[in-house]
Simulated assay, not measured.
Amino acid sequence: MTGGPLRLYELPLSGNCWKIRLCLAERGLPYERVTIRDPERTFADAAFRRLSPLGRVPVLVCPDGTALWESGAILTWLAENTPLLPRDATRRAQVMAWLFWEQADLSPALALPRFFRRNGTEKANAERMRALQEKGRACLEFLDTYLSRQDYLCGAAYTLADLACHVYVMLSPEGGQDLAPFPAVRAWLERIAARQAWEPLLPAG
């Protein structure tokens, strides 16, 4: 990664953007942070659409000008040739399985209730909220059972699987989830938050 700084287009409260910042911190990579203040206008802008065809964040622009979009793809690119993403094909597939599950099941179940609450549309989406809360609890139960047997999702070592999956779990109380019944999940979050490179979604204060 040479030729200039990375440039991250992001929203400060987005969990998917937080994942990228955490991965950049784990790598110790310098980057320019471009915080979008007017999403509706920016996402419709033709210049931004050339970077992000779907008009959403995160977007990471590489030193050569290549724009990467979709958080899972960006995380995978950043984690190449690091302990976060093993080179061994089998161990790598285990990490990738968690990334796919996070996007297909965990993230929608935990992120959407948070989104509805933050945007004041919880009542308008009450029925959907109930279904998502139920699915979210099922995901947390699955994680708690899994993590009761080992410290991290892929064994004894922290990987990209933990980085990607912990974000919306940590934010889930903002969407109404109660983490008290899930001691293994809470211990896992504490281990991750104790990492030297970990940083909160927003600066303290």
Rank of each mutant, 00 (worst) to 15 (best):
R7E: 01
L22N: 12
A25H: 10
A204G: 06
R128G: 08
R118W: 04
R87L: 00
L68K: 07
V34E: 12
E40H: 10
F48R: 13
C139W: 12
L6I: 07
W188I: 11
I20F: 01
D88Y: 02
P83C: 04
W98C: 10
L13V: 15
E102S: 14
L78Y: 09
C165F: 07
L68S: 08
E80F: 02
C23Y: 02
R56C: 10
R137A: 13
D162W: 01
M170G: 13
P173V: 13
W69H: 15
K123Y: 00
P181S: 11
Q103W: 09
P200D: 08
R118K: 13
K123H: 02
E174H: 11
A187S: 10
Y31Q: 04
I20K: 08
G28W: 02
R50G: 12
C17F: 05
M129W: 01
E40I: 11
A79L: 06
R118Q: 12
L6S: 00
L201E: 02
S14Q: 06
W188S: 04
L24G: 03
K135I: 15
A156L: 01
D64K: 11
C62P: 00
P83V: 12
L189H: 12
M1V: 10
E80V: 12
F142W: 12
E199H: 11
R114N: 02
M170W: 08
D38N: 11
A138S: 12
F48G: 09
P83K: 11
Y146N: 09
S71A: 15
R27N: 03
R87C: 00
V167E: 01
E122W: 02
L11K: 13
A89M: 03
F182N: 11
E174Q: 15
C139D: 09
R128V: 12
E32F: 00
D45Y: 05
P5W: 00
W188Q: 05
R87S: 01
L24P: 03
A164P: 03
G155W: 03
D64N: 14
